[in-house]
Nucleic acid binder design. Structure first.
Lengths: 341, 341
DNA sequence: CTGAAAGCGCTAACAA
DNA sequence: TTGTTAGCGCTTTCAG
């Protein structure tokens, strides 16, 4: 089999515990001995067996990352950032995909629990109670959801939604559609709440269409319904749906943003690849991934769990344009004041 | 700490080895005893510690999956398929991203080697020698690359390239551009070779532009160069580049496919989201992911490594149209005969 | 600073 | 069918 600590000990003429120390507590070993051990280890190609180490230290140096759908372009940048950041801290990341299914999600947490030092739950679809139960089995950090007492990093989609609605209002739109996301999504609730409050405060109408699976197809399929409402602007749960809608509207001969304005959320890479380029609320997914890893690894150091909120940014591109009403130039500030809670 | 095999043994009044057997060789234990053990295990919430098990069996039940860039939409469907398929066989998947860097790639293999039962190398950028060295440390299955003696699953991009070029030729194009992919990519070499041979056999011209990083930006940046060649059709290393080029051409007022035809490879989800919809060679990425997992897990059973080639399919959409020459209706069959080696 | 010894949680012969 | 006995490769007291 592979070369073990014993081989190194023998080859360098010391006891295995000295070899062990050389790797896990170098300062406790004589510099000369240390370099000799290191040299033979190097030469033999020795690499500590993490499973064995985990057995005794109780730390696996693995992290679990559970996402709703790897194929959704929202996740890859987050996964990538988390993985790279974790690796830099000598951790490996297990990635698992739940296919948007809360049952699978719970099973995955259980399956991974003993294999990892903690799990990053990204956009979980489980109920709060469910998560509450699971957190006893394994340290959890939740991304894109707020649960009392649980460490979390969320992207402030509420603020983003508010800005987006204000943007639309300022453009002269008075009847908006919110093309909702999936049931069980905290993000979806946040957006809906914030968008609703903002529209209401301005005396504008907001029609909610949904819930929907957060994929292009549902966006495209919603075109008829959107047109049926008579609204002149649509705010979608994510860019995927916004893009699906955008293309579907254009395929029907509806001009965007001439007749209908469309705004998305996430700022996925493809939002600049469609024409018109998509106006959207940028989510700091990479930062969220890194932050979540940090929170998980600090877990225990600073007692009670923190909750970090990351800023979002409205990026105005070409899928939004003037609405049928007079541009409410002063509206932005005015409404903002109202809305500020 | 967590509940161990000893707790279960005590609680159910048997020896730990009986508990062990209940889980790893159920048929060797009395049905009554078994159900009793199972019941207490269930009740105590016992879950075998995989690290401990791995230590003795030598099998971690983990698989490593190394990809060039998670954020490249080519990979997520493959990752997802591999992960789901592996999980069904009770394996977990470590996903790692190399950022297209062969050095990082090699380091990752080494780091993961002891943690996993094998590694799936997807579109590796390393040299053959490098990979040859690494395969001694850990079982490897390579995706999208052929290396003598190494199990591999490849998507037949050569055939796809041939079909694509024939399609273009049949449309009346005689001067094509191949917008190349990254250096070190086997896929890139295959495409180039097949496309070149096919064009040559038909007496058409093929200009190669590259190598390039396989991202939208380079596709967009290549617009000028493409126009400069005077070619009327472009075949890109992947959809990302094709889409970047497509939009960049349109932004310059060049009609696609009116003036220039564009075809990509991969058939990523976004290829139908752009207008015109992209003509492309569909790669069976999900099947590749599943097949690779199977090959890795069968490793050893059937001795020498197999090499599986998966079919690709040309999907004709709207980014390709008539070229300046007479449509060579009969050309397809004719050239195909020539090209068939 | 280094060696000896005792396990981490589990499996795998071997006996009984 | 079940219990006993060794470890897997490593860390961690505790002596020396």
């Amino acid at each position: 089999m592979a070369v073990t600590i014993r081989d190194v000990a023998r080859a360098s003429g010391v006891h295995i515990s000295t070899v062990s120390r050389t790797f896990s507590a170098p300062h406790l070993v004589n510099p000369e001995t240390r370099s000799r051990v290191l040299a033979t280890a190097e030469q033999l190609g020795y690499r500590p067996n993490r499973a064995a180490r985990a057995l005794i230290t109780g730390r696996t140096h693995n992290i679990g990352l559970i996402v709703a759908d790897i194929a959704n372009p929202f996740f890859p940048p987050l996964i990538k950032a988390a993985e790279t950041h974790a690796r830099r801290r000598d951790y490996h990341v297990f990635v698992a995909d739940t296919d948007e299914d809360p049952i699978v999600e719970a099973e995955l947490v259980q399956a991974l629990a003993k294999q990892v030092d903690g799990i990053l739950l990204c956009s979980p679809r489980m109920s709060d109670d469910q998560i509450e139960l699971l957190r006893r089995e394994v340290p959890l950090v939740v991304i894109n959801r707020l649960i009392t007492g649980l460490p979390a990093v969320v992207m402030d989609v509420g603020q983003g939604a508010r800005e987006a609605v204000l943007h639309l209002l300022g453009l002269g739109h008075r009847h908006l559609v919110y093309l909702a996301g999936p049931r069980g999504s905290w993000t979806n609730r946040e957006i809906r709440r914030a968008a609703g409050a903002t529209a209401r405060a301005a005396g504008a109408e907001l029609t909610v269409l949904g819930p929907n699976q957060p994929v292009e197809e549902t966006g495209a399929a919603a075109a008829e319904a959107v047109l049926g409402t008579g609204a002149t602007a649509v705010f979608a749960y994510n860019d995927l749906m916004a893009i699906g809608l955008l293309q579907s509207l254009q395929d029907r001969g509806v001009d965007v943003p001439g007749q209908v304005s469309v705004v998305g959320i996430d700022d996925i890479a493809y939002s600049v690849l469609v024409r018109p380029r998509l106006t959207t609320v940028a989510n700091p997914t990479a930062a969220a991934g890194r932050t979540a890893v940090d929170m998980l690894l600090q877990h225990g150091d600073d007692g009670p769990a923190g909750q970090v909120t990351l800023r979002t940014d409205l990026i105005i591109r070409n899928s939004t344009g003037p609405g049928p009403y007079a541009p409410a130039v002063a509206l932005n500030a005015e409404v903002a004041a109202h809305v500020k809670e």
